[in-house]
Design a protein around this nucleic acid. Structure first.
Length: 431
RNA sequence: GACCCUGUCGUCUAGCCUGGUCUAGGACAAGAGCUUUUCAAGCUCUCGACACGGGUUCAAAUCCCGUCAGGGUCACCA
């Protein structure tokens, strides 16, 4: 059975690169109906923090990656020592006492040889152990080093496929040497290409947010982020961009993962998010948006009309690229005084519309049924009577009502604003 | 510096394994236009790439070699 693992160290948040590694491991496990093991690499006592463990677990859950087992390295220190002692006894390792440190380190002797590994993504890779120094297994403080613990744990957990970032390629020969010295069977290795920032080099804070939780906070949908990440070194074929995770499980295979590192492109992520936002359940989205509106003091914490807000969400859904854009885009539905953007005023409210606005108010007052269709009918009849084009009045009215030059269809805006509020906003421009 | 990995539109990629169907396909971005209402939505169109040089071959994006470029790793960090 396929058993894979994702092994973050809780010395920081789960970042985009880690999320992608988790994704491919999880996907592979689900594709092969194997197990996905989460291993917390908390051997560094000083830098490991519980809050990071929580953060990583939450991010993973948010992305939708459930794990079958969880394993903490800090609970297995005895095992590391046991195997280190074995190597010592076999003469494959030695101890060393340094002047600056207390305690004794256990160090692995590297014997000159050629090491060949067959990587599932890159093919055959050959190393010469001459370039590898003797490896510390147990540090003077008694904690294991990364490469040693990694090997012991992968064996302890029966890991069949080690799927990890490209940056671990040069750790592979060191680990292979340890597998051989301990007489363990080698797993299959698969090294994923790295994700780069827009300016080249690793994705870093300078290039934008790196933590998965940041993307969550900004208003990206997990499905969109996962879909985007998936496309960053894998393609479902048939020129498809959107792919549902369950479909990906059917189509995924390690063999068609790219070898080339990919640049993280926020614009495409934004487009992807919009694709998913369009189809997202409006009520669910509303639940996500309500706290944002509360925060802006657009609504109270208790008394608000959820149905009404849901209707507004529906209005903006097709054109929203971030959930968090909603409060700013739809602010005119929630504030008493709309602020008119100077540029908007200059573009569409640059002359006197007193007569037109007054006539429109009259039409609104005369409406027996205040609904989107009727509003539009009255408006059309008004402009044809005035002998002007619809757009000549639509834009000025939109700016007067919303303060913006862009937004949902005008008649929907009037309808959801309500007759009285619409009239009040128009009157401000009647001299 | 040493070792390792990688090079198709600005970006993500299809094609490469199993040479001809590739005057290289799609998506994002950009630009232009359309939409009896805006665009940050939708539709249409345009721009735009096989890193370079040498082989092999009737034929190379596809196979081989070299160069160059980018990236990664060289800790008692993980």
């Amino acid at each position: 059975m396929v058993r894979v693992r994702f092994a973050p160290s809780p010395t920081g948040n789960l970042h985009i690169g880690g999320g992608r590694t988790a994704l491919f491991n999880w996907l592979y496990a689900r594709t092969k109906q194997g197990k996905f093991i989460l291993r917390i690499e908390d051997t560094d006592k000083l830098r490991s923090k519980q809050e990071f463990v929580d953060e990583i677990l939450n991010s993973l859950k948010w992305l939708g990656f459930d794990w079958d087992e969880i394993y903490y390295q800090s609970q297995h220190f005895e095992t590391y020592h046991e195997f280190a002692r074995k190597l010592l006894k076999k003469g494959k390792a030695y101890t060393e006492r340094s002047l600056e440190r207390d305690g004794e380190a256990i160090i692995f002797k590297v014997i000159p040889q050629k090491i060949k590994t067959n990587d599932l993504i890159r093919g055959e890779i050959e190393f010469d152990s001459q370039v590898i120094k003797d490896q510390v297994l147990i540090k003077s403080d008694g904690t294991p080093t990364y490469n040693f613990a990694c090997v012991i744990d992968d064996v302890a957990s029966d890991i069949t496929h080690v799927i990890r970032g490209d940056d671990h390629i040069s750790n592979t020969p060191k680990q292979v040497l340890l597998y051989e010295a301990l007489g363990f069977k080698l797993p299959q290795f698969a090294h994923l290409p790295l994700i780069m920032g827009m300016e080249g080099g690793r994705l870093s804070k300078r290039t934008g947010a790196t933590a998965i939780s940041d993307y969550r906070a900004m208003g990206y949908l997990p499905q969109a982020l996962v879909n985007y990440l998936l496309l960053l070194s894998w393609a479902p074929g048939e020129n498809r961009e959107r792919i549902d995770i369950n479909e990906a499980i059917k189509l995924f295979d390690l063999s068609n993962i790219n070898k080339t590192s990919a640049t993280f492109d926020l614009k495409k992520l934004g487009w992807m998010n919009n694709q998913y936002l369009k189809d997202e359940d409006s009520e669910k989205l509303t639940d996500q948006i309500i706290p944002l509106l509360v925060e802006k003091k657009y609504i109270g914490e208790e008394n608000f009309d959820k149905k009404y807000i849901t209707s507004l969400v529906k209005l903006f859904q097709p054109r929203l690229s971030l959930v968090n854009d909603f409060p700013d885009w739809a602010d005119f539905f929630f504030v008493d005084e709309v602020t008119i953007a100077p540029k908007a005023k200059e573009k569409y409210l640059n002359k006197d519309f007193s007569r037109e606005f007054a006539l429109f108010i009259e039409r609104l007052d005369g409406l027996k049924s205040f609904d989107v269709v009727s509003i539009e009918e009255e408006f059309r009849s008004l402009v044809s009577g005035l002998g002007i084009e619809a757009k000549d009045l639509i834009h000025p009215i939109r700016v007067a009502l919303t303060g913006k030059t862009v937004g949902p269809g005008l008649f929907e805006v009037v309808y959801y604003l309500g007759r009285e509020r619409a009239k009040k906003r128009l009157r401000r421009f009647i001299k």
